[in-house]
Simulated scan of single mutants.
Amino acid sequence: MSRIVPVGLGDRAYDVLVGEGLLEQAGRLIAPFQKRGRTAVVSDETVWGMHGARLTAALAAAGIEALPVIVPPGEQTKSFEGLADVSDRLLAMELDRGDIVTAFGGGVVGDLAGFAAAIYKRGIDFVQIPTTLLAQVDSSVGGKTAIDTPRGKNLVGAFHQPRLVLADQTVLSTLPDREMRAGYAEIIKYGLLGDRVFFEWLEMNVAAVLARDPEALAHAVARSVEMKAEIVAEDEKEQGRRALLNLGHTFGHALESETGYGDALLHGEAVGVGMALAFRFSARLGLANGQDAERASRAIAASGLPTRLRDVPGHPFDAGRLVMHMGQDKKAEAGRLTFILARALGDAFVAKDVDAAAVLEFLVAEGAHPSGEKP
Rank of each mutant, 00 (worst) to 15 (best):
A167C: 14
I231Q: 06
T174I: 01
H160W: 14
P72W: 13
I129T: 10
R181I: 07
H267P: 06
T102M: 14
E65P: 06
I124L: 13
A60W: 10
R308K: 12
S282E: 11
R212M: 00
P316Q: 11
H249S: 03
P316T: 12
A60G: 12
R12C: 08
G49S: 07
G290L: 09
F104R: 02
S224F: 00
G107Q: 07
M93F: 15
K330M: 02
H369L: 14
K121V: 15
P162K: 02
G82M: 12
A220L: 00
F126C: 02
K330T: 02
F159Q: 01
S2C: 03
D318V: 13
L247Q: 09
L112A: 13
S140P: 08
F199W: 12
F104A: 01
D96Q: 04
G262D: 14
L175S: 00
S297E: 15
P68K: 06
A26E: 02
V273G: 01
A26K: 04
G262S: 15
M1E: 09
A57Y: 08
S257R: 10
H51W: 11
F317H: 10
L202H: 05
A270M: 07
E186M: 09
T46H: 10
L309Y: 07
G82C: 06
G106L: 01
L112T: 13
K352Y: 07
A254N: 09
M93L: 15
N246P: 06
E179M: 00
L67M: 15
G49A: 09
G142A: 14
K144L: 08
G248T: 07
A58S: 15
A62V: 12
A66P: 10
G63A: 02
E215I: 13
L217N: 00
H219Y: 15
V156L: 14
Y120I: 07
R181M: 13
L345G: 07
A222R: 02
M227A: 04
W48Q: 05
A222I: 00
R308L: 11
V16W: 00
G191L: 10
K374G: 08
E258N: 03
E65Y: 06
G240A: 12
K237N: 10
E226A: 00
E203T: 04
F159G: 00
R284N: 12
D235V: 01
L210R: 00
G286H: 11
P316E: 07
G110H: 09
E45R: 13
